[in-house]
Design a protein around this nucleic acid. Structure first.
Lengths: 117, 117
DNA sequence: TGTTCAATTGAACAGTTATTCATATGAAAA
DNA sequence: TTTTCATATGAATAACTGTTCAATTGAACA
């Protein structure tokens, strides 16, 4: 196996490595976690989510609030929809979006407080 | 100003917009928040931080644990150092890294629990 | 002094991503 | 039906990012 080879030769602290290795999470879990954070790694998306945490809004309103084109906002909403982070209802031509997952807002609020130091 | 123009013509819910707009954070704050999350938007960095939350480790050990080359790990550590998320002490040729900010681990743990549903 | 080795660094490459622009959809109003 | 308008979408572009590779640094030891 290649995994071990990387170390076997040069690594120094075998005990530390084994101890920490045994506590590591699944590869898949780390992947999932970073993918979730990736959603919040863009200011436009954070703004959209923050705005939606205040109240339900249509695409046009969001675009106005976050100062982006309708198209750009729509693309981001599509992404957020795919992640089940927002939901929407159609009324005529318009689409009203709202938060589907309050969890993200907790993360954002937590980070806001930490940033304000 | 261009900011208003985007809306003025077509936007529908002026009250909603004004209400939400007044509650929005500073542009700079959103920028800062998303930059912080960007750090956690990569599985290798999450693994490194998680490993360091278990104990102090040298570059070589980390490389072994996260299954990456020393070089790749060193590049990421440089980035994390720049953000004051890790600190290190030199002992001879080796560099022992540890967490400088417990806050990130809280975020990761929070996201882990949420991911395990 | 010269060699070895952990760590660092810069340049290059490949892969990803956010925005723009043009176009399409589909519902309401004319 | 035809036009209008909110939203959605695909393709293209530009900017960014993570890893690799080659080379360097600097400490320990022969």
């Amino acid at each position: 196996m290649k995994n071990d080879d990387i170390c076997e030769v040069h690594c120094i602290h075998k005990e530390s490595i084994n101890e920490v290795k045994s506590k590591m999470l699944e590869e898949e879990t780390f992947q999932k976690i970073s993918e979730d954070f990736k959603i919040l790694a863009d200011p436009t998306r954070v703004k959209i989510l923050y705005a939606l945490s205040q109240r339900e809004l249509c695409v046009c309103d969001i675009a106005c609030i976050v100062k982006m084109t309708d198209s750009a906002v729509s693309h981001q909403l599509r992404l957020l929809r795919g992640r089940n982070m927002v939901k929407f209802r159609k009324v005529g031509k318009m689409a009203y979006y709202s938060l589907a997952d309050e969890h993200v807002i907790q993360l954002i609020k937590m980070e806001t407080e930490h940033a304000e130091e």
